Computed example of a mutant assay.
Amino acid sequence: MADIITLKAQQRTEFGKGAARRIRSADLVPAVLYGHDVEPTHVTLDGHAVMMALKNANALLSIEIEGGETRLAVAREVQIHPIRRTYTHLDLIAVKKGEKIEAEVPLHIEGEAFSGTVVSIEDNTLAILVDPTSIPEAITVDIAGRKPGEHVYAKDIVLPAGVELVQDPEYLIVNVAAEAAEETEDEAAEGEEA
């Protein structure tokens, strides 16, 4: 479970391209906080603080809006400048403790499959339903001793307590296949003669 990261926010009153450019030139990030049947709140956040917070996958953010209101949120849509790699806009979804949300969690593959196999990782994330305060940083998938022809599907992954699978249970995560046989010298010579 990740810690709650606090970000200070200021209410935004200016909108449009010109206002967004002025906000970004001051090393701030325009953002919109919405959810839970509340009117969307337009805010600005410190650019460096946003960059540090979003280094954590599925970061749970405590947004302290100037004037006293504090809301828990997670980043849903993140826009990044294609060249400078700075954050240009955030869509934040308000969440409540005890209410489950959908999250994409990284998978960590551990162990070694049977010798003479090739392991193909088909997907490195898993869609889950979880309390926002209990989002795991990663979920471990053990492939130790797997033989050629064995697979790991989403339904085979052991999930932490309180976590539900959102992904299709038959979704292929890891494929273990036999190594391709190397041609012997005789087979190679026969191929050249033909």
Score class of each variant (00 low, 15 high):
E77T: 02
A94Y: 08
D123Y: 13
L61A: 06
F114D: 10
A75M: 01
A75T: 00
G47S: 15
G98I: 05
S115V: 08
G67F: 09
H108L: 15
A73M: 07
T70L: 03
A59R: 02
L92D: 02
V50P: 02
E69P: 01
P106E: 13
L129K: 14
Y87V: 12
I65A: 06
E64N: 08
R76C: 01
Y87W: 08
E110N: 14
T133I: 10
L107P: 11
K96D: 08
V95N: 06
S62H: 08
E77D: 11
A113C: 12
R84Y: 12
M52C: 05
D91T: 07
A49F: 11
L72G: 05
E77P: 02
L60A: 07
G47K: 15
T88L: 10
I101V: 15
D123Q: 13
H81P: 00
E104T: 14
G98Q: 02
D131W: 07
K100W: 08
E122A: 09
L107E: 05
S120W: 06
L107A: 10
A59I: 04
A57E: 11
N56Y: 15
H108Y: 09
E104M: 14
L61W: 02
L107R: 10
G111E: 00
N56C: 00
K97V: 07
A75W: 03
A113F: 15
E99W: 09
V50N: 02
Y87C: 03
S120Y: 08
V74Q: 03
E112M: 14
V95D: 06
G111N: 11
E102V: 11
L72Y: 14
H48A: 14
G68D: 02
R85S: 12
A103M: 05
V78L: 03
E77R: 04
E104N: 14
I128T: 00
H48C: 06
G116M: 12
L60K: 07
V130S: 06
N58P: 05
R84C: 00
H89C: 03
H48D: 12
E122N: 13
K100Q: 12
P106L: 11
A57D: 14
S134H: 14
A94V: 09
E122C: 12
L92R: 02
E102T: 14
I128P: 04
G116L: 10
